[in-house]
Design a protein around this nucleic acid. Structure first.
Length: 193
DNA sequence: GCGACAG
DNA sequence: ATCTTGTCGC
């Protein structure tokens, strides 16, 4: 059982999810030494990030494992916007494996937009996390795609959701430990008046 | 000033 | 992310 308390805030995903991910990697290393990953596909971004250091970078540094950022949606980064030009470039990706780069205002490549399979026109946003080149990252992600979402991430999604389905409720003491949001505090105050 | 912005 | 009703295609 793990508990996540930090809220989701775009640009700060790592502060919410990395602690649990590090824990999972360490448990794998302790309990399954015969199954050591050579690279991690991270559900989120690496260098494609407002401060150039997304979840895949955090996890890579803390585990010293090669990490690849794989986002299903484009995070807002200065110089990288999903305007009409972006949508047009996405439409130009006709076949699985086709890509185009995402560049910041200075011309530096932050990541690649990848059409991961022929069936889906919605691309993936691949970026370097740690100890891997962008070219290798794109090739690996592409090679993992039976469907749009790379199989390791897809399986993690499916299996974690199945787990949550069987463990629907968090322990009461955990819920009580979570501070009330300003919004809910306001509602509670109104009720008590 | 407001909205947009990984999961 | 989550919820939800229906639809299209292999």
């Amino acid at each position: 059982m793990v508990a996540v308390t930090a809220p989701y805030v775009a640009g700060f995903l790592a502060f919410r999810e990395v602690p649990v991910l590090v824990e999972a990697v360490q448990r794998l290393q302790q309990e399954e030494p015969q199954l050591q990953p050579q690279v991690l596909l991270v559900d989120g971004n690496g260098l494609l990030h407002p401060r150039g250091f997304g979840t895949a970078c955090h996890l890579g540094v803390l585990t010293d494992l090669p990490c690849i950022g794989v986002a299903k949606n484009l995070l807002h980064v200065d110089g990288v916007v999903r305007d009409e030009l972006h949508r047009e470039q996405v439409r130009s990706l006709q076949r699985s494996g086709e890509t185009f780069p995402l560049t910041d205002t200075s011309g530096k490549v932050l990541g690649m937009v990848l059409r991961s399979c022929n069936n889906s026109s919605k691309p993936l946003y691949v970026s370097v996390g740690h100890r891997v080149s962008l070219g290798t990252a794109v090739r690996l992600v592409r090679a993992c795609c039976r469907f749009r979402i790379p199989e390791p991430i897809r399986q993690a999604d499916i299996r974690s959701r199945e787990y949550l389905r069987k463990q629907p409720c968090a322990p009461l003491e955990v819920l009580e430990a979570v501070p009330a949001s300003p919004e809910s505090s306001k509602k509670e105050a109104e009720l008590e008046d």
